[in-house]
Computed example of a mutant assay.
Amino acid sequence: MVNKILLVDDDDATNYLSREILADLDAAVEIVVAQDGDAACDLIQSNNCPDIIFLDVRMPRMSGFDFLNKLDKMQVCKKMKVVLLTSSSRIEDREKAMGYGNVLGYLEKPLTWQSARKVIEAYFH
């Protein structure tokens, strides 16, 4: 179990499903949702560092990649890891995502019990 997971996605249904799966797995003490990258940055800047972020690639205002770039510039929460959780199956997006040092993986939506468990066990146990 990790202390905190942050879900960053503009889709309420995806956030609900992901939150339910992670709660069912007892994956974290706290699961927080941010509707976009700006809200996630605000949370992180207040030194509210999650252990892991499940991040959508395609969001309005700030894409997942824009968020990752801003996160690099913020220089906070150095141990935080990111898993992209997206409907994008583009090879270019996957390759770009894996170029970031804090990105652990690239999963296609929806988050499943098996994929969430695999991430938590592989990196946090």
Results as ranks from 00 to 15, higher is better:
Ala116Met: 06
Ala23His: 13
Lys70Arg: 15
Val8Trp: 03
Pro50Glu: 07
Ala13Tyr: 01
Leu43His: 14
Pro50Cys: 05
Leu22Glu: 03
Gly105Thr: 06
Asp10Gly: 09
Ala28Cys: 09
Lys79Phe: 05
Asp51His: 07
Tyr106Val: 07
Gly37Ala: 09
Ile44Ser: 12
Gly101Lys: 15
Leu68Gly: 07
Asp56Val: 01
Lys78Ile: 00
Asp12Pro: 01
Val33Thr: 09
Phe67Asn: 06
Phe65Lys: 03
Ala27Val: 01
Asp11Gln: 12
Lys70Leu: 12
Glu20Tyr: 11
Glu108Thr: 10
Leu6Asp: 07
Leu55Asp: 05
Asp9Tyr: 01
Lys78Asp: 05
Ser46Arg: 11
Cys77Thr: 02
Val29Tyr: 08
Phe54Lys: 04
Val2Trp: 15
Ala28Glu: 00
Ser18Asp: 10
Ser87Arg: 14
Asp66Arg: 12
Gln114Leu: 07
Gln35Tyr: 02
Ser87Cys: 12
Leu7Ser: 11
Phe124Tyr: 13
Asn102Phe: 09
Ala40Trp: 07
Asp24Ser: 10
Asp24Pro: 02
Asp12Ser: 08
Glu108Gly: 06
Ala40Pro: 05
Glu30Ser: 08
Leu25Lys: 07
Phe54Asp: 04
Lys78Tyr: 04
Asn69Trp: 08
Val32Gly: 09
Lys70Asn: 12
Arg90Lys: 15
Val57Gln: 13
Lys70Asp: 05
Leu85Val: 07
Asn48Ile: 01
Ala97Asp: 13
Tyr123Ile: 03
Lys78Phe: 00
Gly64Thr: 00
Phe65Gly: 08
Asn48Ala: 01
Lys73Trp: 09
Lys4Tyr: 11
Asp10Pro: 02
Glu95Ile: 06
Leu55Phe: 02
Lys73Tyr: 04
Asp38Gly: 03
Lys78Gly: 09
Lys109Leu: 01
Val57Trp: 09
Val8Arg: 07
Ile31Gln: 10
Glu30Phe: 00
